[in-house]
Nucleic acid binder design. Structure first.
Lengths: 139, 139, 139, 139
DNA sequence: GTGGTCTAGACCACG
DNA sequence: GTGGTCTAGACCACA
């Protein structure tokens, strides 16, 4: 599968962190399988018109985390699962964001049902082609 | 109503921004009415053991935004709505966070129903006492 | 074009505000084009012998206003017009000052023609080299 | 003649200063004659819903300046001219404001004729009933 | 009492 | 290199 990253240069979240977190999620969700190769630092940098050092920093963090492994002369690839002792599940990764959203909803005086239906809209927008595919395990 | 702020000193989001965003939401949600007076810079700084300038920075930004107005010699108060060009609704303020969450859910390979039920849990945790009176949950 | 600021340290108008207002006017007047880079915080602070935080405060306000945008690792630049909700015209920015002056003239019992000729003098003093090329008066 | 003040509580210029400067101008322009009595501190404060201390501060400054004199048991009145050695003329008082406006016009890239016609508009708005009354001497 | 401004200096995050 | 954040402390302006 071809690795893909959504990079938003103007975002408040730093670029290297966008890369790190997106890859974490894709691995946790099974979109990336062990052995999948990543685009080279230079290629990714060129593609998104960002600094190669930024890409390199992201890759290094992911390698230190055990999610990526460096293959001499070839590039980076998704590491085998055994290298990662603590593989977070998709729900573990999503929960902090949702907790923050729930807290905001409370401060905004919204009730739960309003917030839920708003989230349902956003989910539809984000997954236009989803049917009832239970492809990934919900921990 | 007595103004209240949840300050998390170690958070990645800067303190002054926590204040700014919480007050934005409280105003949008109607928890703060125009004319409500805010705690003084010094009081809020003492209460949370932070530097007065940090509080002052938050207040100044909110004043520049038109959400607060300075009453010289008295303090700051929530500004009348007419001073604000665009009064965002609670829904408008929550949507970006939920969109981000939906995007993450997609990257994690979670389906919509899983994400929704996870969010429902978070909402219950955030609003422990909500029943059919969403107006003023007494802490 | 090289960005330039006239800073008067002893003025009743605070330094950070001098920067903010001058840049607002230069942008409104087209002296600054979108994409133009600003002097770095440290450089401007050194040049005028003021504290970097003072410059930073001005830049931050202008960014919050949508007039400037941060380019991480590079510096600040004049933002594209679309980032600004309302781009005030030079006339709109000058009118409040002139209204104030007219009000003062009235209180002083001066008639319109006297006030106008006085203003004409001031304009000549302020624009010594203006002829029929209002576009780029070379200093 | 009945003394009148335009007080704008939300203005950036402090209230006491609004009073001081308006009276300076009215005296310089001859709108106030020596002997004219001022409203009492309490009356002015009540009328504009401001703090009596603010009015008092303004009156004290004007007394120190020699523009007002305190009449025991009666109140303040415009002082005789002989108490003021340096009576500024109307044009002297207006020029700083116009110089500032001219400077702003330059920064805005406006040419002199545009600025002048804009000022002419403002003058008309400020003096709706003026004909060709040369009542006050232009120094 | 209120907030505002500025300074000096430290430390961090980003590219 | 860039800007951001926070602190500590001083001094001022306003009501």
């Amino acid at each position: 599968m071809q690795m893909h990253f959504d990079i938003v240069p103007g975002s408040p979240v730093p670029i290297y962190r966008q890369i790190v977190e997106q890859l974490r999620r894709q691995v946790a969700g099974g979109q990336c399988q062990p052995g999948d190769e990543l685009p080279s630092v230079r290629a990714l940098a060129l593609q998104h018109a960002i600094n190669p050092m930024t890409v390199s920093k992201a890759y290094s963090l992911l390698e230190a985390e055990g999610l990526l492994e460096r293959r001499r002369g070839v590039g980076m690839a998704v590491a085998a699962t055994r290298h990662r002792t603590d593989a977070p599940t998709p729900t573990q990764l999503l929960r902090p964001t949702l907790r923050e959203a729930a807290q905001q909803a409370r401060e905004l005086g919204l009730d739960a049902s309003t917030a839920l239906s708003l989230f349902a809209q956003c989910l539809q927008d984000a997954m236009p082609d989803e049917r009832q595919d239970p492809g990934s395990p919900s921990a």
